[in-house]
Measured scan of single mutants.
Amino acid sequence: CHSECLGNCSQPDDPTKCVACRNFYLDGRCVETCPPPYYHFQDWRCVNFSFCQDLHHKCKNSRRQGCHQYVIHNNKCIPECPSGYTMNSSNLLCTPCLGPCPKVCHLLEGEKTIDSVTSAQELRGCTVINGSLIINIRGGNNLAAELEANLGLIEEISGYLKIRRSYALVSLSFFRKLRLIRGETLEIGNYSFYALDNQNLRQLWDWSKHNLTITQGKLFFHYNPKLCLSEIHKMEEVSGTKGRQERNDIALKTNGDQASCENELLKFSYIRTSFDKILLRWEPYWPPDFRDLLGFMLFYKEAPYQNVTEFDGQDACGSNSWTVVDIDPPLRSNDPKSQNHPGWLMRGLKPWTQYAIFVKTLVTFSDERRTYGAKSDIIYVQTDATNPSVPLDPISVSNSSSQIILKWKPPSDPNGNITHYLVFWERQAEDSELFELDYCLKGLKLPSRTWSPPFESEDSQKHNQSEYEDSAGECCSCPKTDSQILKELEESSFRKTFEDYLHNVVFVPRKT
């Protein structure tokens, strides 16, 4: 048989008469490798580009789960590009990614509803959504962080984005990388972005840091009482949809009607710091009717980097990364020049730590249904340095008659930039024990000054392991946590139920 035959053949030295091919099969003959313009397919066939392209389009058009959109890589027609490569849609070739590779997620039936953290986790790592997304989240724990972890990498949506009755959302900033909504599939009414009845939605994105392009379709905003109209108009300008909307697409009466839409800028007039305090004062603000001013709200939190936005980490279910302080308005003076500047002394802060701070007014709604208010920009203030805590785990070892090696770990709280350490030492008198000992005694162990690591005695271990207080009263049991108490109650309830079950099964009433 021919060298490319495997198993047997019907005619000697003829690659077209093989029972099976050793390498690849091409047009009725066995070959060692697939010549151009053919590609290896499933490690035994040679196919042309049209064959591989037909497989790709067949799966793409069917949208069946589990099928493969075949691509070409290293002269092979394979189910998908290997790690580190992405497909070129024009020629199906796998090309190296520039940075992290995109991950295209194809949605069944063309859309997916995100109504819980669990459903959001199914899209973790996706960068391109081939379909439409509907966000409908009523509640949950730590929602802002969970949504950002699972949806934060999405850069492109081919269909539309719909935010509907998501009472738990305060902001859409968890879509931190969303840059493009194509609108290839539109919501009824030709809408590519749809926001309806979101009672706590206050911000779409921080438009000073976020760009969003909507290729096709219109915007729809109705019944978002805490979303200011200025935020919607800003989205029109940034996304390129200005002029597409009709009169009733953006409701003037049901958007922002319960919001404090600040239209003035508060400026800080005085800032002073110490290692654990920050004193702030800002310019006074009074609405047209000074009785509408209820006070100020001061927001602050630790910020290692200057990239904080107002609604980071917030949701309507209680999660809030900001510390909020309510401040009463100052006494009002008739003389504008003698107006008191409101302020606040922030206490209990960490030394040498940068804080993000902003302040906003708290006002009631005027009778004319106009909203007044003022808010400052987010500023960054760093507390002063102070003395560091003591170095940890000092170790001293003498390696000769004239040297001592000293080692330690950095302090747990540096409280500033540590530039150097101060080492103090003092000579001590020799131990009298060394002169009084009889060095001729056998088995004498000389006193040693070398360091030995501390260890816990058996008594201390027994005390720590004991669940009861000892007789001397030195140790006591740790208080039980809520989960331990709940577990004990469940076990007790189970024992009672099981005992009742045994009584009912074992003891049967005697027939009379």
Rank of each mutant, 00 (worst) to 15 (best):
L280V: 15
V397K: 15
D312R: 13
Q121K: 12
Y223D: 06
Q314H: 05
I395P: 01
T254C: 05
N399F: 14
R179H: 15
K209R: 12
L204G: 04
A168R: 15
L147W: 01
M235G: 04
R176L: 04
E187L: 09
G243K: 13
G343Q: 14
L294K: 12
D377G: 05
N141W: 14
V397S: 13
S132Q: 02
A316M: 05
K301I: 12
I214C: 08
K253Q: 12
N307H: 13
F268D: 00
L180P: 00
F290V: 01
I404A: 03
W352L: 08
K209S: 08
S132K: 02
D206P: 10
Q306P: 15
T273M: 11
K350D: 02
Q245F: 05
K112N: 02
V359I: 10
N130C: 02
H222A: 05
D315P: 06
D328R: 09
P351N: 03
Y160D: 01
G373P: 05
T361W: 03
L107T: 11
E109H: 14
L298F: 13
A303F: 14
K277M: 09
L219E: 01
H233K: 04
L298M: 13
D257H: 09
A316F: 13
R370L: 06
K209D: 02
D377S: 09
F311E: 15
W352I: 15
D328K: 02
N334Q: 13
A259V: 13
A144Q: 10
S400F: 05
T118W: 07
A251G: 08
S338A: 09
A195N: 12
L227F: 02
S400M: 07
I181N: 00
Y285S: 09
L147Q: 02
R165F: 15
L266Y: 01
E146P: 11
Q199K: 15
I181G: 00
P287F: 04
G152D: 01
Q354G: 13
I395A: 12
P394C: 14
V308K: 07
Q403F: 05
G159H: 02
S396L: 15
K350V: 05
D249E: 15
S319M: 15
D377R: 11
L406N: 04
L227Q: 02
K409M: 04
K242I: 09
L298W: 01
A168I: 04
T215Y: 07
E237V: 04
D335E: 15
N200Q: 10
N320P: 04
F296R: 00
V359F: 03
D326C: 03
K226V: 15
S208T: 10
V104P: 04
A259E: 04
L227K: 00
S166C: 11
V238I: 13
S239T: 08
N211L: 10
S338T: 12
H210A: 06
D115Q: 06
M346Q: 07
Y160P: 01
S166Q: 13
K267Y: 15
L252F: 14
P342R: 05
D257M: 15
E236I: 03
H341R: 11
Y355Q: 00
S376P: 02
I250S: 08
L108F: 11
P288L: 08
F311T: 12
E231S: 13
G159S: 03
Q245A: 13
T241N: 11
P225S: 06
N198K: 00
N136R: 06
I232C: 08
V390D: 04
M297D: 06
G373L: 03
N320C: 09
D249Q: 03
P410H: 10
F268I: 03
E184R: 08
K218A: 12
I404V: 14
V238Q: 10
D292E: 06
D292A: 04
S401K: 09
L153E: 15
A144I: 03
E310T: 06
S274E: 10
G131H: 01
S319L: 12
N141T: 09
G139K: 10
R347G: 02
D257R: 05
Y167H: 04
I271S: 06
E231Y: 01
S260D: 15
T185P: 09
K209C: 14
I188P: 04
E283I: 04
I154F: 01
L229Y: 12
N255A: 06
L406T: 13
R369Y: 14
L153Q: 07
D257T: 00
N200R: 07
S208Q: 12
D367Q: 10
I114P: 01
V381L: 15
N150H: 13
K360A: 13
S239H: 02
D289C: 14
T309M: 02
Y305F: 09
Y191V: 05
A149Q: 14
G183H: 02
T113C: 15
N263P: 13
F296Y: 13
Y167F: 15
P287E: 07
G110K: 05
G159L: 00
S192F: 00
S400K: 13
W207I: 05
Y380S: 02
D326P: 05
D206S: 06
E156L: 06
E187A: 04
E246M: 09
S321L: 12
